[in-house]
Amino acid sequence: MFQAFKALMKRDLLLAFRHRGELANPLLFFFMIVTLFPLGVSPEVTLLRKIAPGVIWIAALLAALFSLENLFRSDFEDGALEQMLLSPQPLSLLVLAKVLAHWLVSGLPMLLLAPLLGLLLAMPEPAIAALELTLAIGTPLLSLIGAIGVALTVGLRRGGVLLTLLIMPLYIPVLIFATNAVTAAAAGMPIAGQIYFLASLLVLALTLAPLAIAAALRISVS
């Protein structure tokens, strides 16, 4: 069982590295959205510092959504997804492998880029550390929840906007706790509560989301 998990993850990572150009797209998207805010709102440092957590998190949320859109697409088109449905391994586990591989190539780079964006928006150091922590817990959460929506819309030709409509409301708790933690850290307050809450959400999503993704895939593909 674990071997299937590993094999699928390896395959997905390999596929991702073969299309290296595409890997950078969500990152660029993430960067550009953040860049638009000083231009659109105001370059004033105090204001930027205040809105920075929300801006970076909303940009991360959108970038995660857009990068997720193609999570099952190519597998669906070339039939690999049907083979996964037919395989004796539990589908929820295979799905988890795919989501994890996807997070490694899309979520993790965002994590590396985020401190730079924090500096650009004049965030204080403790806030940047908190931002990293919340992104580390939060982006896998975004991938897991988002994958449910992707699985539901995989059979549709134009699933993009629909996916956003389905998933956005479910992202709200993550956004609230994450930005709250960063804002609190900037003010020098303890953030353990928010982090624990995010972590428990992650555990919940890790256990339940693969089941929902698997059920959704079975419905979409049949």
Partner: peptide, 11 residues
């Protein structure tokens, strides 16, 4: 209807 059902349950 089935896909919607999954979404409702997740919701």
């Amino acid at each position: 209807a089935r896909a919607g059902g999954v979404l409702i349950l997740v919701g």
